[in-house]
């Protein structure tokens, strides 16, 4: 599955030869890695390298978990998976950005795909690989003293009452 996905991405990553003249690029590839829980912005560009304007253009984000070899459901990761661009004039270059929430740690590959109305094949950017580190916090929200402390205090309190009662009845 992984090799097919990557192969597909790799094929689409090459500049379109027979279809719409679109170039896609992920510009934040160097700063993309982070830690689970982080919100990061994926920046990209879409350029019309052809002589005529292109209409009804939509760009999508696509994500694959390279460890699990599975595509990732972007519902928890990003609010807008698809961005409707509309018309790109000939020679025009437009910025793209998606706010992504790193939900789970692991290794991932990301790509931007563009679909133009009337074309039967999407065009993709080169793959961007990134790593999401695990969030290691044993004491989220400083809850540990309460989470451990309260049950212990309750046990101690009732043991003390029992001791006093047993002493009284002895």
């Amino acid at each position: 599955m992984m090799s097919v996905s990557i192969a597909l991405f790799a094929a689409f990553g090459a500049p379109a030869s027979a279809t719409a003249a679109i170039a896609l690029d992920v510009s934040s590839s160097k700063t993309l890695s982070g830690t689970a829980g982080d919100f990061v912005t994926v920046n990209g560009t879409i350029a019309n390298t052809g002589p005529t304007a292109l209409s009804d253009v939509t760009a999508y984000l696509s994500l694959v978990d390279t460890t699990a070899h599975m595509p990732v459901d972007l519902e928890d990761w990003s609010v807008e998976k698809g961005l409707y661009i509309g018309t790109i004039g000939a020679g025009a270059k437009l910025p793209l950005d998606w706010k992504i929430h790193f939900v789970k740690s692991g290794d991932y590959a990301l790509s931007i795909l563009a679909i133009v109305k009337g074309e039967n094949k999407p065009i993709g950017s080169a793959l961007t690989y990134f790593h999401v580190a695990q969030k290691k916090n044993l004491n989220p929200g400083a809850v540990l003293p309460v989470a451990l402390g309260e049950p212990i205090l309750i046990v101690m309190f009732f043991l003390l009452l029992k001791y006093r009662r047993d002493k009284k009845s002895a």
């Binding site: 689970a36 829980g37 919100f39 916090n137 989220p140 929200g141 809850v143 309460v146 989470a147």
Partner: peptide, 11 residues
């Protein structure tokens, strides 16, 4: 609370 706050930290 531990579970909820862990999830909150991960937003």
């Amino acid at each position: 609370c531990y579970l909820l706050l862990t999830n909150k930290e991960l937003s």
